[in-house]
């Protein structure tokens, strides 16, 4: 059981997504580059307040070809989307406690990017974010959400 935010956890996510027949069928065939930005909010025991984690996700040919941490915030060149949220929100989604689409609609996850592309590929986006919340194999060494 890989720990949240560990390399193994993201490897598992990549395997989970690439193993989804539904995602393969609906994923955009063109290359799409996005980052997930995890902002420490003082509540998450995994990301200290004031610290941020950045992950790069690359979709190409209907598959996730890259899913890895970045040493710093992406400079935006060649970036299709930026998803930014407090760590607690990402962790509640990963624990299956929050619906990621509703989080996006409420503004708990800030989304920047090509909204026309997002609308055209909404089914694939839904599968992708649902898989993030269905990662039942997560280990929470410092406690699982909801946090007190």
């Amino acid at each position: 059981m890989p720990a949240i935010y560990s390399d193994a956890w993201y490897d598992d996510m990549k395997t989970l997504i690439n193993g989804s027949a539904d995602f393969k069928k609906l994923a955009p065939k063109q290359r799409a580059v996005m980052t997930l930005e995890v902002v420490g909010d003082g509540k998450s025991p995994y990301v200290p307040s004031g610290k941020e984690l950045y992950y790069l996700v690359v979709l190409d040919g209907g598959q996730v070809t890259d899913y890895r941490p970045l040493p710093e915030r992406h400079d935006g060149k060649g970036l299709g989307f930026r998803f930014t949220a407090p760590a607690t929100v990402w962790e509640n989604i990963a624990a299956g406690l929050l619906d990621p689409i509703t989080c996006g609609l409420r503004g708990q996850i800030k989304i920047r990017g090509d909204m026309r592309f997002l609308m055209q590929n909404a089914d694939a986006v839904k599968i992708l974010v649902d898989l993030y919340g269905q990662q039942g194999q997560t280990d929470w060494p410092q406690g699982k959400p909801p946090y007190p």
């Binding site: 996006g104 609609l105 503004g107 800030k110 989304i111 026309r116 609308m119």
Partner: peptide, 18 residues
């Protein structure tokens, strides 16, 4: 603003520019 308002804002801006 809500996320929906933000998404629609970006969507409409990009549509007008399209």
């Amino acid at each position: 603003a809500s996320g929906l308002a933000d998404l629609l804002h970006q969507f409409l801006e990009q549509t007008v520019e399209a």
